[in-house]
Design a protein around this nucleic acid. Structure first.
Length: 273
DNA sequence: CGCTTTTGACCAGCGC
DNA sequence: GCGCTGGTCAAAAGCG
């Protein structure tokens, strides 16, 4: 994959593989832990089909533009404040700030606002718009430079929720969907009214524990997430390495006690206050 | 009828 | 300053 096409994933950083064969599990785990319930259970139970094959957790702070990943990837993208005067609590849609006499230009000016924390998920899937438990309204689509696939822009349909997401396909591997979430939901999921239902007995479905959006992601939250992944990973027979059907090899070396992935996400000093 | 999607236009930011 | 690109708006069309 050419990450230079996606500014969010193009930083000079090392891609670290976190995982393991059971990607669906991690996909659900990671997304739900960030307040998202990705509908990504096992192949026969969800509309994503059998596309999900592998999972990765990638800290943008140390990403590289190297290897492509046939999998699900989670990337903390950025936390950029473009408007110092703005606050997260006032991060409403700019149109709400406009007055009745406000022309388009004024709206555009008001548009300068905080860019909230973003997370990018790379998901190998045939479905562009992955079901994540929330309802989205598409508000734009743009052709992306160096990519033959357009990028779609979605907003949460909840009027008080400012969360947005962008969905695009990797130009190098069209089977990979890059979903970038920005912001945090201020409400619970709406379930899967359009047909997606988690089987209650699905052993991979752990999202039921995470109906409430988590607090704003922070280093401690990453730590908890990774510890959780580690626990789940070690509760079953060891899976130090796996090879997916399409030849991608995933080596898991999750050890929260050592430098590694965690070190990329959470500075040592923050992990050991 | 209400909501969602489509799509062209507009604007801001950035690099040169 | 200029051109390019990403992000957003908003009217029109589509859909259930």
């Amino acid at each position: 994959m050419n990450n230079s096409e996606n500014p969010d994933l193009s930083n000079d950083s090392a891609w670290r593989e976190l995982t393991a064969p059971d990607s669906d599990f991690y996909t659900s785990s990671i997304l739900s832990d960030f307040g998202w319930n990705l509908h990504a259970s096992s192949d026969h139970h969800h509309p994503l089909g059998s596309g999900l094959t592998q999972t990765e957790l990638i800290p943008t702070s140390s990403c590289s533009s190297s290897a492509a990943a046939a999998s699900v990837t989670v990337t903390e993208v950025s936390t950029i404040s473009k408007n110092p005067s703005a606050t997260s609590s006032s991060g409403e849609d700019p149109t709400e700030n406009s007055t009745s006499q406000t022309p388009k230009k004024e709206k555009k000016k008001a548009q300068k606002r905080i860019r909230q924390q973003r997370f990018a998920f790379m998901t190998k899937s045939d479905v562009d718009n992955l079901e994540d438990g929330y309802r989205w309204r598409k508000y734009g689509q743009k052709a992306v430079k160096n990519s033959s696939f357009p990028r779609s822009y979605y907003r949460c349909t909840n009027s008080r929720c400012t969360v947005k997401k962008r969905v695009e396909r990797s130009s190098e591997d069209p089977s990979i969907v890059i979903t970038t979430y920005e912001g945090q939901h201020c409400h619970q999921t709406v379930g899967f009214p359009r047909g997606g239902i988690f089987p209650a007995h699905d052993p991979h479905n752990i999202t039921s524990h995470h109906h409430l959006p988590p607090p704003l992601p922070n280093p401690h939250y990453y730590q908890e997430l990774l510890h959780q992944l580690h626990r789940e990973n070690t509760s079953s027979p060891p899976l130090p390495q796996s090879t997916t059907e399409d030849g991608h090899v995933s080596v898991s070396s999750i050890n929260p006690s050592e430098e590694g992935l965690l070190g990329d996400i959470v500075p040592y000093t923050m992990r050991n206050p």
